[in-house]
Design a protein around this nucleic acid. Structure first.
Lengths: 195, 195, 195, 195
DNA sequence: TATGAATGAGCATTCATTCAT
DNA sequence: GATGAATGAATGCTCATTCAT
């Protein structure tokens, strides 16, 4: 998402960047097209020349964001890794992504729960990411190295654990110590709290 | 909150119930006072007779909800339980609460991320619940039965794991199998994925 | 008005007093029945038990106020006074009244200009006061001691001169020096600016 | 204000004109933005595109009106006139202005008395006009041709005399005979009622 | 007499969207 | 491609008035 964007300097891109800023600062409803236009140094009509509606602009944005997270993780899940290593990689990548794109992640967590079409769409995207985790869990189970838990439950649990823990720190006051968070989550996810 | 509410049939309560419905369906911004009034079969002015503003109505609602979750859990965390049993209890209670008050939980997950005062307030409430978990984790560490992970990280991780996994099922199509979810999360949280 | 009021301690009177305070502070439109009820330490319904409407309450209030000014002046305009002395008396009385009932006078000046029934009513009241002045001017003209100016013009001019000059001081920062104001207005009204 | 306004036919101007009409008819509080929009044949949103708020629109309006009166008078107060001629000129101009802009003058007299910021602002504007009169009175005193009255008292008295007398006629039923009113006020202001 | 909960019409303001240039 | 003036439906909130007790 953001990477691609930095290459071109088209109006479309200016708008896109501005939209990320504004949506993450204010949320979908509170953000106005005027805000975005001002941030992009573009006339309001110009946004409508490039995007059909506020909704569509937002959808594009979230789509690219989730895709980026998913692809980033997927591309690193090479065949030579063990299930355990894959889980570690997923946790590390997700923690890193949340640190790098905090604002986008706030959007995601804010706007994915509800019954509007947009929100259903977002949950579908998130599920496509969770599916990656589920696949790894299944592999582990098939290989006999993981306990017999529902892959779906494990997928959402691991995503949720990392997401909420990351945002909890990022939206609090302290520093975001990615290494400590990773080490703690890895401990819990793989070996549990109990000694 | 909801329990007490069901007993009385005051206007205040009608409004409260309607507000839960509407806010969870549409979120804070999209929900209108007209919606809530219509759902409660009350004139719009009546809402303002009982609550100072939309914001205040919402705040009350979330306050009572989180308090109910927190107190429900806290009251059951008796001294005779081991840390392991306490973690199990917390997971079971939270899973049950999410099943019972799905709409409220959607509200909580939707509206807690952002920089508005209201949102800061919500996160503070959630933190007061997480603190319960942190305390138990600390106990376990002190007793030498839990691994040495940051209690804060563990607290947000366990809350997030259960919250997201629960909502993932509740907002999907399938049934909400509390027992299976509990058993899976207990497994991961206490002993991890690895055999 | 105010004098009579202080004698009784009925609810009606409590409301009346509160209404004067609130109306003069906020004006007719901005003043609310809640304000008045709170100031009178009375339930809102009680006001409606004693007065038919906000409008009526206001009307009563202004009626009594103007009547008090008019009667106060009229009762002192004894037959033994010369027209010149009468003009002096009118000026002195009006200046004194404005000083004593500043808030009420603000109401009067605020709410008398417009086309609503209430406002027409107020102007009629004011005209009944101006009529006193006109009569004196006519007397002076008939007696050959006043110049030949339209009595009506003179009446409104003298009322306006004293009213605006008084409020100009009363709403400004300085002290309200009634004697100096009287002496200046007397000078202008009777002998003019020119030496 | 009005003069310039009549030249252009911009939306801004349409709104401005409509606002004068509506505010003078109903007063600030009772006038609604819907009224103004309807009168201007403009969508309500259009008003907000050109003016930040009802308050701001109103303020602009009064500002320009008073400024027009002040400048109109000031520009004619040339050095070659005697104090007496200047007072005459001021009276004539003010009487003419009130006749020409009756509605605006109603607004001014209605909305200048109270403690709201807006009203303080208006009184400040009026004082800037009164200052013109005070200066002339001072000149007359310095030149030894006027009696020794407080310039401030004389300023507010002359303004008030002309304002109230003018509106008294304009809001009554009869014709507005500017010449007679001028001749009467000149008589009183310069030479007084007494022969 | 007195109360205060309930009402609903009314209002200022916002903002996504359109469209003539 | 780009603009920004214009739109009008939508919304949170107010407040005079009513009425059951």
């Amino acid at each position: 998402m953001m990477k691609v964007m930095f290459l071109r300097k088209s109006k479309t891109n200016l708008i896109f960047q501005a939209a990320i800023d504004v949506f993450s600062e204010k949320g979908f409803d509170k953000a106005t097209m005027d805000d975005i236009a001002a941030r992009a140094n573009v006339a309001k009509g110009t946004i409508y020349y490039h995007f059909k509606s506020k909704e569509e602009l937002f959808l594009f944005l979230v789509e690219e964001g989730v895709e980026m997270l998913r692809e980033g993780v997927e591309s690193k899940l090479t065949e030579d890794l063990t299930p355990r290593e894959k889980i570690e990689l997923i946790l590390r990548e997700q923690i890193s992504f949340f640190g790098q794109y905090r604002d986008f992640c706030v959007i995601l967590l804010r706007e994915s729960w509800g019954a509007e079409d947009r929100q259903l769409e977002f949950r579908k995207m998130i599920r496509s990411y969770m599916a990656l985790i589920e696949k790894v869990v299944q592999e582990g189970k098939d290989a006999g190295v993981f306990h017999d838990v529902s892959a779906e439950n494990a997928g959402s649990a691991l995503f949720g654990m990392a997401a909420i823990a990351a945002l909890h720190i990022l939206l609090g006051k302290g520093d975001y110590d990615e290494d400590k968070l990773f080490s703690d989550l890895k401990q819990i996810a793989l070996s549990g709290l109990l000694k």
